[in-house]
Nucleic acid binder design. Structure first.
Length: 734
DNA sequence: AGCACGCCGACT
DNA sequence: GTCGGCGTGCTC
C-alpha cells in the first residue's frame, strides 16, 4: 500500500529526530536531526543552532513531541564529551519546571551553568622516574631522583619544589632520559575527604542525635530528617557524621548553605573533620574553577560540594545525601527567572534520587516544624549547648517605660549595659536591621518626602556616602541641600534610625570607645572578612550592624547584644513576618555568650507582650510555633475548598491593583487577593522584565498548579512577563 | 532568554 | 545626514 511504502521510504531516508531542551522559554523541547554517525542518547549534552547563534542543550526524552515542519529542522552541531544527564536528573528538572510553572528550557539551563568548555579538561604533562640514571650524579640530581622515587608522576615545578632543586636540574635529567614525560588527568579541585580523619567526640544529646541520624542514613532510601538544635548545640558535628557515613558508602554529598553562610570558617570546620575542604559552588566562583568543579562533580571526582541554592542543580554522578543547613533561611528562595525554594526542591531531588535529606536549623521554618510534629520528617532535637558555653540571659526593654532621650533611639537601659560591657573590656553588639542613616527624609517647610522616581518607595539617606538611595531598585542620587519642592535650604529632616545614625548616637555617648559599623553596603566581601577578624581580635568595643552580623561569625568577647528595634518587620504585610522576626532575632541573640562569660541580650520593643518577644526571652518557642501554625491555617487555608490566598505584586501599586482586579474575575473562588506595592515587591520584579509576580499559598501542589495555569490563561494578558511562586506545604510534593 | 529588525530623537 | 534608544517578534 502506498501509505506503508511512504512510511518505509520515510524510515529509510529520514534522519533521526530527537527533542533537545534549549535554554529559552519555549513550552517544550525543540526538535533537531541527528547527523550521520553521531551518537546521542537522552541526557546527551549538545550544541545546536538556535536562530542566529549556537547554544547548549540537552537531548530530552521522547514524549509527546509534536511534529514540526521538516523544513525547519536543523542538525545537532556536536555532542560534548561529558557524561549525559541521568534520567533521575531529567525527571527532577521536568518536575521543577512543572511545579514552578516555568519553561523547561530555563530550568534545564540551571544544570548547565558551567560556561562553554564542556569538553574534558586537557591532560597535563608530568614527569615520571625511569630506570635510567645520569652518567654524572650530583647532589641536586640525587635529591631530585630520591624525591620522585615513589612511582608517582610529578609536574615539573612540583618536583623541583619538593626536591629543593632548580627546574634546570629536572630538565637536565629529563634530557638524559631519567624522567619520561607522561600525561595525567588534571589535578582535582579539592582533595578527597577522609571520613575517618578526625572523628569527633560527641557527648550526651549530640551522641544520641548522631546515632539516630546515622540510622536513617544507613537505612538508605528516601527520608527527611529535621535537626532542630539551638545555636552552639553542635548541629554541624552531628550532620558531619551523616556525611562521613555517606562517603564511606562511596556516594557524593551536597551541603546547601545560604550564600552568606558559605564562609571560610565553615570550610575550615569541614577540613578539620575530614582533612580537606569541600568543593565550593556559588555565584562568584572564578569561571575557570566553576568549570572544573562542574566537570569533576559530573564525573564523580568531587565527593562533597558545599554550595548556595544553585548547587542543587549540579548533575552529580552519584548523589547520596543532601544537607540543607539553616533550612529556614529566606535566601533559599530564588526570586528571579525560575522561582523556587531550594530547601523544598532538595526534598524533591532526594525523593526522586531515593536518598536521605537532612534539614538543619536552630529555628526551623513553620512548614518543617509541622512536618516534624506530624512525624512526616524525623525530628531530631538538640536542646542544650555543649561545653562551657552558657546561654545569654535575655530580656525585653519596654520602650514606653524606658524611652530614649529626645532625638535619640537607644533607651537608657541599653546605653547602661553597653557602658558596663565596654567598661569590663568586653564587646557590645547593637543590631538594627536597617541600612543607611535614616529611612525617610522630609522637608520641614513644605512636607515634601523624598521618593524614588522609578519605583516610588522612600529614598534612604546614606550619610557616609552623601547619597540618598532606593533600597528596592538601586536608584541613588547625591543628597540634595535644598528641598526640590519649595527650594528651602537647611530644612530637610531625617526620620527614623538606620545603623549609621545609631553609630552616631553611640559615639556621642561613648566617645572613647572604638565603634564600628557593619553593613553590606559599606564594604565588599573581602573588607568585611577583615573587619570581622579585627573584631574577633578585640579591635573594636562596640559593633553596630545590620543582618550580616546575624550569620556565621562568632565573637568570643561579645557579652552584650542589644536589638535596637525588635519590632521592625512585624507589620509589613508578609504572612511570615512574625516567623522571620523570630528567626532573625534568635540568630542575633545567639551571637552572644559562647565564652563562658556571663552575657546579656536585650530587645528594645514597643510590644513586650508580643509572642515573638516572649518566645525569644523565655527560650521556649513551642507556644510561638503553635500560634504561628494556627495563624497560618487561618490565613492560608480559608474555608472555600483548597484554593488559597494570592498575592499580586508589581512595579507600581496601580499595576498590581489593575491586575488583581482581572484575576478576581478570572478566578472568583479565590479569597483574599493581597496586593503588594513597590515597597514590598521583590527586587527582581522591579529590575527585571517580570512585571507581575503572583505568590500563591496553598496546600496541594496539583491544585495550585492547575489553578495558576488556568488563571494565567483566563486572566488579562498584561505587558511583560508574569512570574509565579507557589508557596506550599513542602510535604505536598511527595 | 537572546538577538534581529524596525522606527523615531540628539549628535559625531 | 547617522547613531542608538527599546518595542515587537522569532527561534526546531
Amino acid at each position: 500500500m502506498t501509505e506503508d511504502s511512504t512510511d518505509l521510504f520515510g524510515d529509510l531516508f529520514a534522519k533521526r529526530v530527537v527533542p533537545v531542551m534549549v535554554p529559552m522559554p519555549a513550552p517544550k523541547a525543540y526538535s533537531y536531526t541527528v547527523p550521520e554517525g553521531m551518537a546521542v542518547q537522552p541526557g546527551s549534552i549538545v550544541q545546536v543552532p538556535l536562530g542566529p547563534r549556537q547554544v547548549m542543550g540537552v537531548v530530552w526524552d521522547e514524549e509527546g513531541q509534536d511534529a514540526v515542519d521538516p523544513k525547519k529542522l536543523k542538525e545537532i552541531t556536536l555532542v560534548f564529551d561529558c557524561p549525559p544527564l541521568k534520567l533521575e536528573m531529567r525527571r527532577f528538572l521536568d518536575w521543577v519546571s512543572s511545579y514552578t510553572v516555568s519553561p523547561p528550557g530555563l530550568v534545564a539551563r540551571m544544570a548547565l551553568r558551567a560556561p562553554a568548555a564542556l569538553d574534558p579538561e586537557p591532560m597535563v604533562e608530568a614527569l615520571r622516574l625511569t630506570d635510567m640514571r645520569p652518567e654524572r650524579m650530583t647532589d641536586a640530581r640525587s635529591r631530585a631522583i630520591a624525591a620522585a622515587d615513589n612511582g608517582f608522576a610529578w609536574t615539573r615545578s612540583g618536583l623541583s619544589h619538593a626536591a629543593g632543586v632548580s627546574s634546570s636540574v629536572i630538565d637536565g635529567l629529563t634530557a638524559q632520559g631519567v624522567f619520561e614525560t607522561v600525561f595525567m588527568s588534571p589535578p582535582p579541585v579539592v582533595a578527597v575527604p577522609d571520613p575517618d580523619f578526625v572523628p569527633p567526640r560527641l557527648e550526651g544529646p549530640q551522641k544520641s542525635a548522631a546515632e539516630e541520624l546515622l540510622r536513617k542514613v544507613a537505612e538508605g532510601g528516601f527520608s527527611v530528617s529535621l535537626i532542630d538544635g539551638i545555636t552552639g548545640s553542635g548541629k554541624t558535628e552531628v550532620y558531619f557524621e551523616a556525611i562521613a557515613a555517606t562517603l564511606k558508602a562511596g556516594r557524593q554529598v551536597l551541603i546547601l548553605l545560604p550564600e552568606i553562610a558559605l564562609t571560610a570558617s565553615f570550610l575550615e570546620r569541614f577540613q578539620d573533620r575530614f582533612g580537606s575542604k569541600p568543593a565550593e559552588w556559588h555565584s562568584d566562583l572564578a569561571p575557570r574553577t566553576r568549570e572544573k568543579v562542574w566537570r569533576q562533580v559530573t564525573e564523580g571526582g568531587v565527593r562533597v560540594v558545599a554550595g548556595a541554592r544553585s548547587a542543587l542543580f549540579l548533575p552529580f554522578e552519584d548523589l547520596g545525601l543532601i544537607i540543607v543547613d539553616e533550612e529556614h533561611d529566606p535566601a533559599y528562595k530564588q526570586e528571579d527567572r525560575v522561582f523556587y525554594n531550594a530547601r523544598d526542591m532538595a526534598v524533591v531531588r532526594a525523593r526522586i534520587g531515593d536518598f536521605p535529606v537532612v534539614l538543619v536549623s536552630a529555628t526551623p521554618s513553620v512548614e518543617s516544624r509541622v512536618n516534624g510534629d506530624l512525624g512526616r520528617y524525623t525530628a531530631i532535637h538538640l536542646p542544650t549547648r555543649y561545653g562551657d558555653a552558657a546561654l545569654p540571659h535575655l530580656g525585653v526593654v519596654d520602650m514606653r517605660r524606658h524611652p530614649p532621650e529626645r532625638g535619640g533611639f537607644l533607651s537608657p537601659v541599653l546605653l547602661n549595659q553597653i557602658g558596663k560591657a565596654v567598661g569590663r573590656g568586653e564587646q557590645a553588639l547593637l543590631f538594627l536591621n536597617r541600612r543607611g542613616y535614616a529611612p525617610l527624609t522630609l522637608c520641614r517647610v513644605c512636607g515634601h518626602r523624598f521618593q524614588c522616581p522609578d519605583c516610588s518607595s522612600w529614598l534612604v539617606e546614606h550619610r557616609f556616602r552623601g547619597q540618598i538611595q532606593c533600597h528596592h531598585c538601586g536608584h541613588a542620587e547625591k543628597t540634595p541641600e535644598a528641598c526640590p519642592e519649595c527650594g528651602t535650604f537647611d530644612h530637610l529632616v531625617a526620620c527614623g534610625p538606620g545603623v549609621e545614625r545609631i553609630a552616631e548616637e553611640v559615639d556621642r555617648h561613648f566617645p572613647d570607645a572604638r565603634t564600628i559599623v557593619l553593613s553590606s553596603d559599606l564594604m565588599g566581601v573581602k573588607r568585611l572578612r577583615l573587619e570581622l577578624e579585627a573584631i574577633q581580635r578585640g579591635e573594636a568595643d562596640i559593633v553596630v550592624g545590620t543582618q550580616l552580623v546575624a550569620k556565621g561569625h562568632n565573637f568570643p568577647m561579645m557579652t552584650f547584644v542589644g536589638i535596637v528595634d525588635a519590632d521592625i518587620g512585624l507589620s509589613n504585610g508578609d504572612p511570615r513576618a512574625a516567623e522571620r522576626t523570630f528567626q532573625l532575632l534568635s540568630q542575633v541573640t545567639g551571637r552572644a555568650g559562647r565564652t563562658g562569660l556571663k552575657s546579656l541580650g536585650l530587645l528594645q520593643t514597643y510590644q513586650p507582650q508580643h509572642p515573638v518577644m516572649q518566645a525569644i526571652v523565655s527560650g521556649d518557642s513551642h507556644a510561638f510555633y503553635e500560634r504561628e501554625i494556627s495563624e497560618r491555617e487561618k490565613a492560608l487555608l480559608p474555608p472555600f475548598g483548597r484554593l488559597a490566598s494570592l498575592i499580586v505584586s508589581a512595579e507600581t501599586r496601580a499595576d498590581a491593583e489593575g491586575h488583581a482586579r482581572g484575576l478576581r474575575q478570572a478566578a472568583p473562588n479565590v479569597s483574599g487577593i493581597s496586593i503588594l506595592g513597590p515597597a514590598e515587591a521583590p527586587l527582581a520584579l522591579i529590575r527585571g522584565r517580570h512585571r507581575f509576580r503572583l505568590l500563591v499559598h496553598g496546600r496541594r501542589n496539583s491544585d495550585m498548579q492547575g489553578f495558576v495555569k488556568t488563571m494565567i490563561a483566563a486572566g488579562p494578558k498584561p505587558r511583560g512577563t508574569i512570574s509565579v511562586q507557589l508557596d506550599i506545604d513542602p510535604q505536598s510534593f511527595l
